[in-house]
Nucleic acid binder design. Structure first.
Lengths: 360, 360
DNA sequence: GGTCGGACTGTAAGCGCTTACACTCTCACC
DNA sequence: GGTGAGAGTGTAAGCGCTTACAGTCCGACC
């Protein structure tokens, strides 16, 4: 119960220590350390040297409090495990760390958590400078509230109006899959992971579905395809869906799985039944998951890690101060520059899981 | 260029606003909000209500600066993508968030980065209350410096003397694999992912290697096994290693792969050569990766997510103040309680990739 | 009835930075 | 030679909390 903290953590040096040691004022130290202008080169060098010798680093809490900026970016994800998400996060983390930002991650178990995080001021406000949301739908009013709080936002996987985003063209994904399958002669097709086609919806499954159907149609194929929604986008969902398809009296000859992970499950089911992917039934996935090549899965590749990196870069860019120019615009706000929307490239990767329709 | 920040972020309420609104002092608000004692129940309720109505949340930067505690936990990992790491992180994140800690993640590209992070005060000191390091060797002096800075440390995957840890018994892992393979009649064995056996080393590959060899020995088998080190612990490394093994004039009949991911690569190589795992060559991995069941890989399971969660719990526990009791001990430090060391359970999971040695 | 301890509450001093503003020099220029 | 514009530096006022310390009140107890 002494005055000190029990653990005798050695007193660390503060900006004042450095200032007196270097024989300058704290203001100068502050400016020198942050590379601000108006510090003589010689002074800066000296201060930096002294600081280095003393092992000084600015206390982030103090900086944040004083400057009002946190130098922290928060990544919001449905869940951290899972290849897709962790890969995106990895890409984003690398860029953020490189740029000197701390990276906070928060997993949202449910949409409810999302609301809590976005609407209430918990993770926003004075806690983070920017948000990268991955595969999370941000409602316009939520986005507004985020902006109002002075927090930047970038989304990957889907877009949020008025904010930068990086995503792929999901309709084209479906179309590519359809083209590939049709070219191989398949006519009895199914989708795994489909969502009821709601023409108003813009979520990923719906778009891919739409693109796929559209692709078929442009080849003159009917669209009374069997569709199964594997409840979850993972292996289990895929397996269940494939099982259901195969139990059908007239199973499809080719299947479009909306994610590679689902496709893995589907392939398991195939294996269990002694069927060979690509020979007995063709299957194409989406992602080019790191294990797709292990099971020779044909897929529509997206380069997930780079999405994360790109999103981080957009975010950081968006957080730069408005640059002082053009502030003379008569409006009250800075000129509303169109936010960057990156549509990342996708690519068909043909492997063994798709083949010509079986002769019968 | 006005006095305000350009973006007109609506003034958020401070503790003073709440205090005056509630008709109490800031001290009372602070205490009430944090559930500290010495606040009348009625007062607390009132304050909390007012705060809620005003949408008040304490500014974390200010709290940190004033209290000296960050309510932040940092997770240090070799890389964020990859099933093992992201799964551990997911487990840890859930627990930390639940307990009200922010979770910072930092990926270390190299051991050099690690030193930077641990030795220099970058991520320590006033930035985080605790560290959970995943599969990262922390040198004793690094650990000391961390402790001295008042930062708690927990490691998963390996242990750091004097700090809590959660890991598995890697020698037993090797032994289990050996037992299984020997019981199936295999005698010509190999290891993928082995490290040169340095009897002083306690890193994961070495321990598993040692356990495996020991297991063989206890069955009376010689140990002039072929060993291949797949440079990396991933799919590629496994594939290369298996290729090398198969190119040998007398290839093994069974292989112990030190990670499931390597085993996947090995299985790919098998497939490429028209060999069937479990029939032509048995292979057993370690992890029970989420896709192991997809390729029917026999493996020694560890439940990775729970490791992360357990580590987080240990950390949080370790960060609790010393509890004031027993402070009367004549020593200058609190009684040095043995840190918890959790040795998590492992389990053999038999699937199709291992089978009786082929009749020849 | 006076006193004392405990339960509450308030006052104010920081925590370690950032930054507006003021100030001191140098020069370049007329 | 005087002046004004920078360039470089210092002073000090916060940023929004936490918390030691100092009350104030009230009921219990002698």
């Amino acid at each position: 119960m002494g005055t000190t903290n029990g653990t005798s953590r050695s007193k660390r040096s503060t900006i004042e220590d450095v200032a007196s040691e270097a024989g300058v004022s704290v203001a100068t130290v502050s400016r020198a350390m942050r590379g601000l202008p108006n510090v003589a080169i010689s002074t800066r060098a000296h201060v930096v040297a002294v600081a280095g010798r003393m092992g000084y680093t600015a206390d982030p809490a103090a900086s944040r409090l004083a400057a009002g900026t946190t130098k922290t970016i928060t990544v919001v994800i449905p869940n951290l495990s899972g290849w897709y998400f962790s890969t995106v996060v990895a890409g984003a983390e690398a860029v953020c760390t490189e740029a000197g930002y701390d990276v906070l991650v928060v997993g949202i178990g449910s949409q409810k958590d999302l609301s809590r995080i976005l609407s209430e001021q918990y993770h926003l406000e004075r806690r983070t400078d920017g948000l990268v949301v991955i595969d999370v739908a941000v409602a316009p009013d939520q986005a507004d509230s985020i902006t109002q709080r002075g927090v930047a936002l970038t989304s990957v996987g889907s877009r949020t109006a008025g904010h930068p985003s990086v995503r792929i063209d999901n309709e084209t994904v479906g179309r590519i899959a359809a083209d590939h399958l049709v070219e191989l002669g398949h006519e009895r097709l199914a989708i795994i992971g489909a969502q009821k086609d709601n023409p108003l919806s813009f979520d990923v499954p719906t778009l891919r579905h739409r693109g796929f159907i559209g692709g078929l149609a442009s080849h003159g194929l009917a669209v009374d395809d069997v569709r199964l929604e594997g409840g979850n986008f993972g292996v289990d969902g895929g397996q269940e869906a494939m099982a259901a398809l195969l139990d059908h009296p007239e199973p499809p000859t080719a299947v479009f799985s909306m994610s590679d992970e689902m496709a893995f499950g589907a392939i398991m089911e195939l294996n269990d039944r002694g069927l060979v992917p690509g020979r007995d039934l063709s299957i194409i996935g989406v992602d080019d998951h790191e294990f797709s090549r292990v099971v020779a899965l044909t897929t529509v590749r997206q380069s997930v890690a780079s999405h994360g990196a790109a999103a981080a870069r957009l975010l950081i860019e968006a957080m730069q101060p408005p640059d002082g120019q053009g502030a003379a615009a008569d409006g009250q706000l800075a000129a509303p520059i169109e936010p960057a929307e990156i549509v990342a490239p996708i690519e068909l990767v043909v492997r063994g899981s798709t083949g010509r329709v079986a002769q019968r």
